[in-house]
Deep mutational scan, measured.
Amino acid sequence: MSIQHFRVALIPFFAAFCLPVFAHPETLVKVKDAEDQLGARVGYIELDLNSGKILESFRPEERFPMMSTFKVLLCGAVLSRVDAGQEQLGRRIHYSQNDLVEYSPVTEKHLTDGMTVRELCSAAITMSDNTAANLLLTTIGGPKELTAFLHNMGDHVTRLDRWEPELNEAIPNDERDTTMPAAMATTLRKLLTGELLTLASRQQLIDWMEADKVAGPLLRSALPAGWFIADKSGAGERGSRGIIAALGPDGKPSRIVVIYTTGSQATMDERNRQIAEIGASLIKHW
């Protein structure tokens, strides 16, 4: 067993022997301040990774656009098919120029040779490549099948209805392509620590998230040296922004954090800054 596999296998073990965790309302004060600064709703939840206990939450059962955070769930569904012998990570998928959609920095470079399922998941999570996500959605049967996968996990809230990039439209009061912070946090925890996926697939999923290259201005910008984070960000229309993450000190994750916002007129930089400040408060009061 590799060191990384050992780390993920012992996530519940280490967490069980940690000192009790206590909620700190100071972080919620910052979440509410972010709402004021952005002029928009902000949803927040913080779960203990081992027990699933909610440590703090704000608007945990209000719907927010998922945006690209759905790509972690998508690759979880792909990995479940791999575990069941219905898919192979090494299978190569070929596609054409007509398949390319807006923001496809990886797939646009491989029109000639195609990409493997493993490479597509890596591109979808680490670079948020939209064509990679659409190609992977095709392998599982489309958005409705991802929703069905989530329902089978016990998540009857999260739903995907459309493809990239239309799913980022974020129309107010439109339930399409949305989740709730509580539902997303619980589902992410199941994917990373539950028995739904094999140990190898859980490790692969967290490795992809740990290698995320496009979430630097968010929670990662607030992390002290030595902290662990595996995350996936999302951005959408109407001032929408979000991030889902597993993080913790001492090089291992111990909490799940989900943050979503929508309806702001603020710039992307300002949305990023507010999420980073929430992260800084979380870490300060850990």
Rank of each mutant, 00 (worst) to 15 (best):
R176L: 08
E87C: 06
P224A: 05
D269N: 12
T179Y: 04
K144E: 12
I275T: 04
D48S: 08
T186R: 15
R202C: 09
F149D: 06
V157Q: 12
Y95H: 05
T139V: 14
Q265T: 14
E26K: 14
G141V: 04
T27I: 10
N272Y: 02
Y260R: 02
L247Q: 03
S281C: 11
E237G: 14
F58T: 07
D36R: 15
A266N: 15
D48K: 03
G194L: 08
I140W: 05
P105Y: 06
V257I: 14
L146M: 10
Y103W: 13
P165A: 07
D36F: 12
R255W: 03
M127L: 14
Y95M: 07
H94K: 12
M127E: 12
T107Q: 01
D99G: 06
A170Y: 11
E102K: 12
S122Y: 13
E270P: 05
S128P: 00
I140D: 00
Q97P: 14
W163S: 09
L192T: 08
G52L: 05
D250R: 13
L191K: 02
K232W: 00
A266W: 08
L136A: 05
I278T: 03
R241E: 03
S128V: 02
F58A: 11
F228M: 10
D48C: 06
W286S: 02
E56D: 12
S201E: 00
A40S: 11
A84G: 13
P143A: 07
C75E: 05
A124I: 03
T261C: 13
A182G: 15
K252C: 12
P65K: 02
L247S: 03
A77H: 12
K53N: 14
A133D: 05
Q203A: 10
G279K: 03
R92M: 14
A222V: 15
E46L: 11
T193S: 12
M67Q: 08
D99E: 11
T187G: 08
Q88C: 10
L73I: 12
I278E: 01
G154D: 11
L49S: 07
Q86F: 15
A132T: 04
L55R: 09
M153V: 11
R220S: 04
A215K: 04
A124S: 10
V42A: 05
A148M: 11
D99K: 08
C121T: 02
Q265M: 14
F64A: 01
K213F: 09
D161S: 07
G226T: 12
W286C: 00
S221M: 10
L282T: 09
G226P: 06
M180L: 09
E35A: 06
E35F: 02
P172T: 11
S254M: 11
S104Y: 04
D177Q: 01
D36Y: 11
P224H: 06
G194R: 09
D212S: 07
P65C: 02
L223F: 04
L135V: 12
R81A: 10
I243R: 00
R220H: 06
R273H: 11
L135F: 07
S68I: 06
A133I: 02
T112F: 13
L219I: 13
R271V: 10
K30R: 15
A280Y: 13
H285W: 14
P172R: 10
F70R: 01
M153H: 09
M268N: 08
E26H: 15
R59N: 13
A123S: 10
I259Y: 04
D250T: 13
W286D: 02
L74T: 06
A235Q: 06
Q274P: 05
L282W: 01
M67L: 09
F64W: 02
N134M: 03
D36V: 15
P105E: 06
E195V: 08
F64E: 01
N130F: 01
L167T: 08
R241W: 02
T179N: 04
M184R: 01
A133Q: 01
L135P: 02
F58V: 10
G234W: 00
V258I: 15
I171R: 15
E35K: 00
D177S: 02
E102M: 14
Q203D: 10
E102I: 12
R271A: 10
T179C: 02
L197Y: 06
T158H: 00
E87G: 05
G236D: 04
N272H: 05
V31H: 00
D129F: 00
D155G: 01
S264P: 04
G142A: 05
T158C: 04
E46H: 08
S122G: 14
